[in-house]
Design a protein around this nucleic acid. Structure first.
Lengths: 123, 123
DNA sequence: CGGGATCCGCATCGATACTG
DNA sequence: CAGTATCGATGCGGATCCCG
């Protein structure tokens, strides 16, 4: 492993921050399925505020991961779609999603074991 | 893709939160290299407070991703190591790290383009 | 429809001091 | 050495209102 992976400003850290963003990856995976408009995204993703949505969309666009396409209708229509770069990032996230689905049960049972252990020691 | 990937409590979301944790993955990758003791980790990871370190270590242990081994010396010696489960998670993170190293340049240049565009439109 | 601007509470995190 | 406890700043994110 590259030594600077543990430094504060290594590439991995920056990307991990992106991926770690509560909504960014979710949006990326959604847009990989199909292009979508603002309010459709808003409705599809439970619990996101429009402030967060517009903020995350903007930063994803800034990173070149998604593209914003405004059509001058009245009222205005805006469609978001994933870029080639975004597509490759989404692909790199897939193993993580697979891992999650396969191993969540193990994680949860580990948590239960840990909590029971702690409780026992407290007594 | 599974439909519930966009719900608030899907497995992926939970794991993504873990991975998104600023320090958790870093620690995981470090412990994959070799087992380490508390202060060694603290020194190796720049900028982490001991509060955060102990907190993240505890939650990683709770999830069954790392193991804590205390040796009754004076003063006490504690060694942390990665588990089998943690090893597989670290493996799932690798594609992401590779992506980061390969594509960070593209992301940065996209950001510069975006910022220049914004500045121009403001004028 | 697709956002921007503002206000504000709450959780997160760092710094410091202390302990077995 | 390996943490825990407490305090205090700050900034993220939700709620609300408004606009082109």
């Amino acid at each position: 492993m590259k030594p600077d992976v543990y430094a504060a400003n290594c590439p991995t850290r920056q990307i991990l921050d992106r991926v770690g963003d509560k909504w960014a990856v979710l949006i990326l995976l959604l847009l990989r399925e199909e292009p979508m408009r603002f309010n459709r995204l808003r409705r599809t993703i439970e619990g996101i505020s429009q402030k967060m949505l517009s903020q995350v969309l903007k930063s994803l666009e800034r990173d070149g991961l998604i593209r914003r396409h405004a059509i001058a209708t009245v009222p205005v229509t805006v469609e978001y779609s994933i870029t080639q770069l975004g597509l490759t990032l989404a692909g790199a996230v897939d193993p993580l999603r697979d891992w999650a689905e396969q191993n969540l049960k193990d994680v949860l049972s580990a948590q239960r074991r840990y909590d029971a252990q702690q409780k026992e020691e407290a007594a």
